[in-house]
Amino acid sequence: MHTAWEEAGWERLGDGVARRRMPGWDETIGVVAGSAGVLIIDTGATLRDGADLRRSIRGVLGRDVTHVALTHPHFDHVMGTAAFSGVQVFGAAGLDELLRREQDGLRRDAVGHGVDPVAAAEAADILVSPHHLVHGELTLDLGDRQVLLANVGPGHTAHDLAVLVPGRHGSPEIVFCGDLVEESGAPSVGPDALPHQWPAALDRLLALGGEDARYVPGHGAVVDARFVRDQRAALAARFGTSPG
């Protein structure tokens, strides 16, 4: 029997926790619902994506998103944020300055990856920077549940944020990894990546979630700790690790 989440096109991961793999770039969007708040993790590549996500979540829960967590500053994860007006936005320390500085770069990257130029320009013009910056770890109170935001980077970018959702009723913890972990292909190592520091970021991610957690990649199927360790080993073999 399908749940309301599944009927609305989401994959249910646990009690009040779901995710959607978006069309086009296959980026994962997460949602965590508590009694007093609703967190969305990343917002899609365009304002239309953001608006569709907001409408879909409201349709399932009967209430609006109250918090946004941005896992890293790539167009397919942040360009829909302005669709969530009045919502508190969280990101890794330094993400605010980077998004203000790189609006045009994000627009060009989005267009280069196939986003309609008008839609890309519209989203970039009103790009939302985080209101709250996470330097180490920050606990977000959603009422009957608390979610941990952790600045575990740098790695995929200089501003990688993970989201830990504690398990309920014996269910495993869920870790939204952003693009620090990718299952549908090899990790994307772009010009803003810090590959020598990436293995250490995955060590921090594994310490955060533990051996029994479910790890939700930025792209691809949900994985386990062994997959994350294997990806860490592959990155270390390819790039080495930074001293210390």
Rank of each mutant, 00 (worst) to 15 (best):
55 R>A: 14
103 Q>A: 15
85 S>C: 09
116 D>E: 12
47 L>D: 02
108 R>E: 12
49 D>V: 06
45 A>Y: 12
18 A>R: 07
39 L>E: 02
24 G>P: 01
126 I>L: 06
32 V>E: 03
118 V>P: 09
124 A>D: 01
109 D>A: 15
31 V>D: 02
37 G>C: 08
18 A>I: 04
113 H>T: 03
89 V>Q: 10
116 D>Y: 04
125 D>T: 08
44 G>D: 04
69 A>M: 03
31 V>S: 05
38 V>A: 08
120 A>L: 12
23 P>S: 03
122 E>Q: 12
22 M>D: 10
64 D>E: 15
127 L>R: 02
19 R>W: 09
48 R>T: 14
34 G>I: 00
51 A>V: 06
77 H>N: 13
112 G>K: 08
90 F>L: 15
45 A>Q: 07
123 A>I: 07
32 V>M: 07
53 L>K: 10
114 G>E: 10
37 G>N: 05
69 A>C: 00
36 A>D: 14
79 M>W: 08
59 G>E: 11
95 L>Y: 06
20 R>K: 13
124 A>E: 08
29 I>G: 03
93 A>F: 05
55 R>Q: 13
116 D>S: 10
91 G>R: 10
26 D>N: 14
90 F>P: 06
54 R>F: 03
38 V>M: 06
80 G>A: 07
74 H>K: 11
123 A>S: 13
107 R>Q: 09
117 P>L: 12
28 T>N: 12
40 I>S: 00
18 A>Y: 13
79 M>N: 08
69 A>Y: 10
54 R>V: 05
73 P>L: 12
52 D>A: 13
103 Q>G: 06
30 G>W: 07
25 W>S: 11
85 S>A: 15
127 L>M: 03
102 E>D: 14
35 S>E: 03
120 A>P: 04
86 G>N: 10
21 R>A: 11
45 A>P: 12
100 R>V: 09
77 H>P: 04
123 A>Y: 05
79 M>A: 13
35 S>V: 04
42 D>S: 10
26 D>L: 15
25 W>D: 11
37 G>D: 13
124 A>T: 06
69 A>P: 02
19 R>E: 08
42 D>Q: 15
22 M>K: 04
121 A>V: 05
73 P>S: 12
23 P>I: 04
58 R>V: 03
53 L>Q: 03
29 I>N: 04
40 I>F: 06
27 E>C: 10
88 Q>R: 15
102 E>Q: 13
71 T>D: 07
19 R>F: 14
18 A>G: 09
46 T>S: 15
56 S>F: 05
101 R>W: 07
44 G>Y: 08
127 L>T: 05
54 R>N: 00
123 A>H: 11
18 A>L: 08
65 V>L: 08
74 H>N: 11
86 G>T: 00
76 D>F: 11
117 P>I: 12
92 A>M: 02
100 R>W: 03
44 G>Q: 05
65 V>T: 14
113 H>M: 00
99 L>Y: 02
89 V>F: 00
73 P>T: 12
114 G>C: 11
116 D>K: 03
81 T>A: 15
41 I>L: 02
100 R>Y: 00
40 I>R: 01
25 W>K: 14
91 G>I: 10
56 S>N: 09
108 R>T: 10
